[in-house]
Nucleic acid binder design. Structure first.
Lengths: 373, 373
DNA sequence: CGACACGACTAGAACGTTCTAGAGTCGGAT
DNA sequence: ATCCGACTCTAGAACGTTCTAGTCGTGTCG
């Protein structure tokens, strides 16, 4: 049935009565063939259903226009990220090869497989491997890490300004009239520290040090549930949570204990996970600008492949707030302050992209003037 | 920095003072080298940090132990499926190349890219392209379609017995004491017809024809919401829904209209989507046996690559019911019938796998667990 | 009329592997 | 002594492409 040998350039050449090289020229759309023969060769190729062999092609031409992408199957928004990466790669004529990290296939394996595919650069989505390993890897080929801050001048980084994300969340709540705002953190998870600090900074900027309250949390739903139980003795009027998953756990416990969300407590999540959009959950949350991140990551990888000398290795993208149904003014001040937007899904557009240049002494300062109307 | 040429077999050979062929032998772990030189070559290779070039390897050796997988970034459980596929492929020494379908990258593109990679077979997750196209594709190389019934003797199919899935759902509800059970269908979505028919059959089997009621639905949350509104005039005591996403929409509308779920209405979804596990949603649902499906798909692809003549092209896997919090006995019969299991996440184990034609190829169904949400 | 440039095409060498066929070497059986 | 088989290793040809360095006409300009 399907046992026939592949049709190659040679077959097409023979059928069209020309040389292999000429067919190659036509297939690549390279200069050096007349319009007439070009047409004829294409016709024959179509008839024989010729399919180029990318492996032979890459083997010969050395430079593979190929980006390796490592993604995790459980990551909240790897879907959208992949979509963006495909878009960006296609736009500049690059291909993508994917390698997944699964519960039983670790990052090292995923990376090794890509290395064997000889891709020109690696894009890692939220890599968990130690910095040192990233560094040696980056010594061999360009490496772009996404959604992870890594203090290592060898690797490029494209990530969200998580500190600022919590500024947005707190600003929003304060604008609604909240003052007693707690934060449920992410435990030892990657960007937990930065988000926690963002919360602290924002609270102080609003002169709300007195209300600062950080509760231990984590990545999962149970972590949020646990944090909620801890908050119940002395509930604040609003909470910012490390991520959406944890936030749903929190939501659930609060409601089961008779507290109304958002009536009694407003909740802000983080990530804009797909489920947070469900009418049933309808969570106000902080979204990462995935499209921009993808575009920048690909651009950066390609620059690096082309041997560009780039000064700033880290690009930090501002997040944006997605206001949904879990945030309203606190009940005791209801009506005395700016009402919440009544259109669901309103987003605060991100300001300009900024890159951190020079010494890796943390990220550039925030511009506190930018609040909500 | 990273501009140095790749280290090849020739480099290793030169450094070790042996021939290229011998190094190849050692790297492939093929017979024909003494233990001493083997050790020495490996040592040198390690020192030079040699990485085999899979492209050259595949180019030469013709048969690529490579399976192409097309998956959609929005599919409810492609994560778990990929996990399973990786497991299964690794177990028999095959590699996987992934190609994603995104909102702006259609299936044809994804498939074309895999064809260029010269994979030995294709595994398509829920393919949407017309049957005819699948057939021509299958003429060129082995094709396994998952989660889609396709009447075409050329392509292999591994899918869930969706009809039976609805039998399970209805049986469960009936066992709880429900009789007035409606179904919200999936509109023109792929397996909608089969699930609808499963519902009908099950109802008749229980002598409940009088209660049969199918409401138009669809794939999305809004579809479920719309269906819920339609049900409100004369609410049944239980509903089976085409999928989980639609079910959440339905849940939401029901509750907003003062109906309690599961108090007033029990709801069963389909897919065991990750969000259905959230405490907040806690949806009773029908789960596909993803681990088994993945294992079987890979096995089938490999058999086909090895040129086996296989009688039955279609393998249909029984689903299992995951009982969670949205199903309890109807309020008027509460206590008069078997109480629901109070342990959450209880699963009804699947019976044996059945093939539609011919004898089933004796297979060990191991369930490699599930990814965490 | 010769030189020269230019366009259309081709031969053959890469690329980094694997595979086939064979060349040494050594010990033991005839 | 000779032959044989087993073992270790090597030379060189594939694989399907791209790329370099041409060749061959043909027209154009001096």
């Amino acid at each position: 049935m399907s046992g026939e040998r592949r049709v190659t350039l040679a077959d097409v050449a023979a059928a069209a009565g020309v040389s292999v090289a000429l067919v190659s020229i036509v297939m690549r759309d390279a200069p050096g063939a007349s319009a007439a023969t070009r047409e004829r060769v294409l016709e024959v190729a179509r008839r024989l259903d010729y399919q180029p062999d990318s492996r032979a092609r890459l083997l010969r031409s050395g430079q593979s226009r190929l980006l390796g992408v490592v993604f995790g199957v459980m990551h909240p928004f790897h879907d959208d990220l992949l979509t963006g990466l495909y878009d960006a790669a296609e736009k500049i004529g690059y291909e993508l090869t994917l390698s997944a990290v699964t519960p039983r296939r670790d990052e090292r394996t995923a990376i090794a497989s890509l290395l064997q595919d000889r891709c020109a650069a690696l894009v890692l989505l939220g890599p968990q491997i130690p910095t040192a390993e990233l560094a040696t890897l980056a010594g061999r080929l360009p490496v772009v890490a996404m959604m992870r801050a890594v203090r290592q001048r060898q690797v490029d980084v494209v990530r969200t300004d998580d500190g600022r994300g919590l500024h947005l969340a707190v600003d929003h709540l304060v604008a609604l009239g909240h003052r007693n705002i707690a934060h449920v953190d992410g435990g030892r998870w990657l960007s937990s520290a930065e988000r926690r600090q963002g919360y602290r900074d924002a609270m102080r900027r609003h002169g709300l040090q007195a209300y600062e309250r950080v509760v231990n949390g984590g990545f999962g739903e149970e972590d949020g549930a646990r944090a909620a139980r801890e908050l119940l003795d002395e509930p604040p009027t609003a909470v910012t949570v490390f991520n959406d998953l944890s936030a749903t756990g929190l939501l659930d416990v609060l409601r089961r204990h008779g507290l109304s969300v958002p009536g009694d407590i407003s909740v802000v999540g983080y990530d804009d996970s797909s489920f947070s959009r469900l009418a049933h959950i309808d969570l106000t949350t902080v979204a990462q600008d995935i499209g921009t991140m993808a575009t920048l990551a690909v651009a950066r990888a390609v620059e690096r492949i082309d041997g560009a000398q780039i000064a700033h290795r880290e690009v930090v993208i501002p997040p944006r707030l997605v206001v949904r149904g879990t945030t309203v003014p606190p009940s005791d001040t209801k009506g005395t302050t700016v009402p919440p937007p009544d259109t669901k899904g309103t987003t605060v557009p991100p300001p300009d992209i900024k890159g951190t240049t020079g010494p890796p002494s943390g990220h550039t300062g925030d511009d506190p003037g930018r609040g909500r109307p």
